[in-house]
């Protein structure tokens, strides 16, 4: 049994390489990194535009066989789409609301495989990142918690009118 204990001590040693805080592959070219990031986002955005038939940069529908887009006033979209969750300030929230449109008819994406996400446009993300730079601390008591969404944000609450058997004890 001692042999086994020793073995496992050695596995750990084998996996360790001095202090965990270290730079592995030399300096990072920041400018190049940023260029690549912009390019990657741009590419994602173009793919999403093709996929959804919608130009996400100018917030305009594109000619597309798959989707027909229809504008909806900001006040009519569910709460979730109205305010931005990072407390971006009025401008950001407003913008998100104006941008919301809903697909009408058209192809319904196959349920599991093809639901791709729409990346933000680069400008919009820049704003986000300013605010996100501090990730929440573990013990921090954040007052910025997002409001819990209720099912009634999406559906109107109605009193139940069908007859229900009285609960026991009533």
């Amino acid at each position: 049994m001692c042999r086994i204990m020793a073995t496992h001590k050695r596995i750990l040693r084998a996996l360790r390489r001095g202090p965990a805080r270290r730079n592995l592959f030399g300096p990072v070219d920041r400018e190049q990194l940023h260029v690549e990031y912009q390019a990657a986002l741009q590419k994602d955005l173009e793919e999403a535009s093709r996929r959804w038939g919608f130009d996400f940069i100018s917030d305009k529908p594109l000619e597309s066989d798959d989707f027909k887009w229809e504008g909806v006033p900001g006040a009519k979209v569910p709460l979730l789409y109205r305010s931005c969750m990072h407390d971006l300030g009025q401008a950001g929230g407003q913008r998100a609301a104006e941008a919301a449109v809903k697909p009408k008819g058209g192809r319904v994406g196959s349920p599991q495989s093809e639901k791709e996400n729409i990346p933000c446009s680069p400008e919009r993300c820049e704003n986000d990142l300013e605010n996100l730079e501090k990730t929440p601390e573990r013990r921090e008591n954040t007052g910025l918690k997002r409001k819990q969404t209720n099912i009634t944000d999406f559906y109107q609450a109605k009193r139940r009118v069908v007859w229900m058997p009285p609960k026991s004890g009533e």
């Binding site: 965990a20 805080r21 270290r22 730079n23 592995l24 300096p27 990072v28 920041r30 990194l33 940023h34 990031y37 990657a40 986002l41 994602d44 990346p119 933000c120 993300c125 990142l129 996100l132 730079e133 501090k134 990730t135």
Partner: peptide, 17 residues
């Protein structure tokens, strides 16, 4: 842990990618 060879901003950008 990367010995500050990257910045939080970059981490968050690439998270999206």
């Amino acid at each position: 842990y990367t010995d500050n060879s990257i910045r939080p901003q970059e981490l968050l950008e690439w998270e999206l990618v």
